[in-house]
Amino acid sequence: MEAPVERAPSKPVNSLSPVGDWTIKIIFFIYSALCIFPILLLVMVSLSNESDVIVHGYKFIPTKIDLSAYKFVFSDWESIARAYGVSAFVTVVGTALSLIVMALYAYPISRPDFPQRKFFTFFVFFTMLFNGGLVPWYLIYVRFLHLKDSIWSLILPLVMSAFFVLIIRTFFSTTIPAAIIESAKIDGAGEMRIFFRIVLPLSTPVLATVALFSTLNYWNDWFLSLVFITTEKNYSLQYVMYKTLTNIQYLTQHSDAIAHIGGATKFPSETVRMAMAVVGIGPIIFAYPFFQKYFVKGLTVGAVKG
């Protein structure tokens, strides 16, 4: 399946009048500018001089470029590197785990000959309809699994998504020919072997889509950190950004960094906030072209296959 935009949009003979074409162009230019503007503004503020910001507010064009916010942020690079590490670990391990666990669950319930198929499908489907709420859920993780302040509390809750399990199941049952599975069985292959050698390779499109969504969910999660994480070494990148936005103290408590910029009283809190955001968003923007390509492909698969 090709990404939508990679095909000619319409037949040339049937294309839009130049006036219509220009109208659409202008609308999109305005909208795209509005989308991108806040991000650029953030970058510009992070490059501004602190006292300029305090006197004139956030300006799109800084009067002069000042890198002291970045100097400050990177003087404490260990904690940022650490947050990146936590986020990367959670994302990679979480996505891999999630993919394998969901595919393993989806396969049996996609097999029409499995007698308990209905029960196990309902078992996963029901979690979409009803839940126990925050309080018992929190207590289970903290008191029963003892996962408070553990990196696993950032992974486990997002492993099983009923919606994705059902999507994978639908893909398995609609695109993998039963005949292939039958003939493999006749050749004496076990279920595990069939699953890993035949089913998974044939399902890369749906697995890639789910993996991308899963990556996004893990990378962008901050809620789990908010409720479970207490010590700094387990802070994820999103959580560090959250803390910086609401509570600049997270940065001031790193006294080395303060000393680095010449004493506590010269702390550029406004620009540092924005610099922290840029440091947090930066890599995503760089990975975006790659990401977007596969994402669009994946969504296309999802939309067509249901």
């Binding site: 305090i54 600049i248 001031t252 506590a264 009283t265 010269k266």
Partner: peptide
């Protein structure tokens, strides 16, 4: 009304 930066920390930050 919304900040969660303690006043002593704000004082420390210098502005």
């Amino acid at each position: 009304a919304t900040t969660t930066t303690m006043n002593t920390e704000a004082l420390k930050a210098g502005n």
